[in-house]
Design a protein around this nucleic acid. Sequence first.
DNA 1: TATCCATATTAGCATGATATAATATAGGCA
DNA 2: TGCCTATATTATATCATGCTAATATGGATA
Lengths: 96, 96
Amino acid sequence: MQTEILSEERLEEWAEFLKALAHPIRLKIISVLIEGKQCVKNLSELLHTSQPNVSQHLSILRSKGILGCKRDGSIVCYYIKDERAVEIYKILSKEA
Amino acid sequence: MQTEILSEERLEEWAEFLKALAHPIRLKIISVLIEGKQCVKNLSELLHTSQPNVSQHLSILRSKGILGCKRDGSIVCYYIKDERAVEIYKILSKEA
DNA sequence: TATCCATATTAGCATGATATAATATAGGCA
DNA sequence: TGCCTATATTATATCATGCTAATATGGATA
C-alpha cells in the first residue's frame, strides 16, 4: 500500500493550480500566449478587457507559476512558464 | 483566419469544467474513482469527510458531466464519465 | 524636471463557493 | 406499516472571487 503518495498538500496545490486556470479570461490568456509571448497592452486589446483587469488575471497566473514575465523598457511581456497549462488547454480544445 | 473557433461560450464551459475539478476533495474523488467505481458511503470514509459534504461534491461533478452514477438498490455507485478528467489528473500527478 | 505611456495596486462592492447542521427522500426488510 | 440504512437536499453563516474605479509606480523622452 502506498503511504499517502496523495498528500493533502499535494491536492491543495493541484486545486490551486486548476483554480487559477478556471476562468474564461485566464483560459483565453493561455490560448493567446500559446501562440507566443505578448505584452499587457496587446492582451488587453485581444481580450477586450480593461488593462487593470488583465493585470489582475496575469498576476494570478504568475503567482501560481503558470506565467512568467520579462520587462523590456516600460513594456512587460508575459509567457507560459508551466507547460502543464498548455497540456490541459489542449485536452480541453481537443474535442470538437 | 479562424472566425472565433474560441467562442465565449466554449471558454465559459471549459472554465466551469476546470472549476468543478479545482477542489482538493473533488480531485481526491477523481483519484479514487480512477481505481474503480465506488458508492457514496465508501467515498465518505475514504475521504474522511461527512456524507452530506461528499454528496454535494459528487453532485457538482455530476452536474458537469464529469461523473455518472447508477443506483443499485439503496446504494448509488459513482464512476468517471468524462475521460478528460482522468487525463487532467494524470498531467497533475505526472511530475514528481 | 515635467510629462506621457505602460503596467501594477488598492478599495469597495457584489456575487459565488464552502462547510456544517438539520431535514428530507428512498429502498430494504422485519 | 414501521424502522433502518444510504443518499440527497436545504438553510445558513462564512469566506473567497471578480469587476470597476481610482490611484500609484516606473520607464522613456522632451
